[in-house]
């Protein structure tokens, strides 16, 4: 998706201001932001959606909306989309603020306080057994990223499309974000770190042409040169 989140290289956002933004939450907003963080993680632990479905839910909105929301407001908007799409909460329930029918989550799929340490410690590994599938590319191989512009979820940033680079590392056989964003938890491909010269990405505007940028991409995003 050529979405509002894909901002690598975009101009106009101003300075970073690290001193004023050093904490995980905005000053004065800690209370609701940390609660929003926890609600999102707890609801996600129910296993109703994949991490890529949650990213797509946050990003699949108009640029004007995305860029008018703060970080955790985007999380809340994404969560609301997921809850409705998955049929867990109806628009009427959102409007009234109360459950209109019985609980939607079967017992055991609602994260308890006792399960929090183990759940956070376990995380959600995305590597899968590759079976007979061998990586087609090896470190040092020259590659070109494909000019992929699907309407759906993809993790190839716009700034790195159709660009020549090289394989820095083979990272593993990982669940494919493009299909995982549709709820498919099994489809996987070899994941590579690909390096680019800054001069390749930014042309004459490169700050320092010999500097490098890497991205992590799956085999279907790449052609060998």
């Amino acid at each position: 998706m050529n979405g509002p989140h894909d901002i690598g290289g975009m101009h106009g956002f101003g300075p970073v201001d690290p001193g004023a933004n050093a904490a995980p939450y905005h000053s004065g907003a800690e209370g609701w932001e940390e609660r929003a963080m926890a609600i999102t993680i707890a609801a996600g632990a129910g296993g109703h959606w994949t991490i890529d479905e949650s990213r797509f839910a946050r990003e699949n909105r108009s640029p004007s909306e995305y860029h008018s929301l703060s970080y955790f407001q985007i999380w809340l908007a994404g969560l609301r989309s997921l809850l409705q799409t998955k049929g867990l909460v109806t628009s009427e329930e959102f409007a009234t603020g109360h459950a209109g029918n019985t609980a939607t989550t079967p017992a055991g799929r609602c994260l308890t306080a006792e399960d929090v340490p183990a759940t956070l410690k376990r995380g959600g590994p995305v590597d899968r057994p590759p079976g007979d599938v061998r990586p087609a590319l090896a470190p040092g191989d020259r590659v070109r990223t494909r000019n992929l512009q699907p309407r759906g979820h993809i993790r190839l940033p716009a700034y790195a499309r159709d660009k020549e680079g090289w394989i820095v590392a083979v990272q593993g056989y990982h669940v494919f974000a493009d299909t995982s964003a549709k709820g498919d938890r099994d489809t996987a491909h070899w994941l590579y770190t690909v390096g680019f010269r800054a001069g390749t990405l930014w042309g004459d505007a490169a700050e320092h042409p010999a500097d490098e940028v890497t991205i992590d991409v799956w085999e279907p995003y790449l052609d060998r040169l």
Binding site: R35, M37, A38, I39, A103, L111, L120
Partner: peptide, 14 residues
């Protein structure tokens, strides 16, 4: 109310 989150779990995450 919907059984999707438990407040004590949110406290534990934070």
């Amino acid at each position: 109310e919907k059984g999707i989150v438990q407040p004590a779990a949110l406290d534990a995450i934070i």
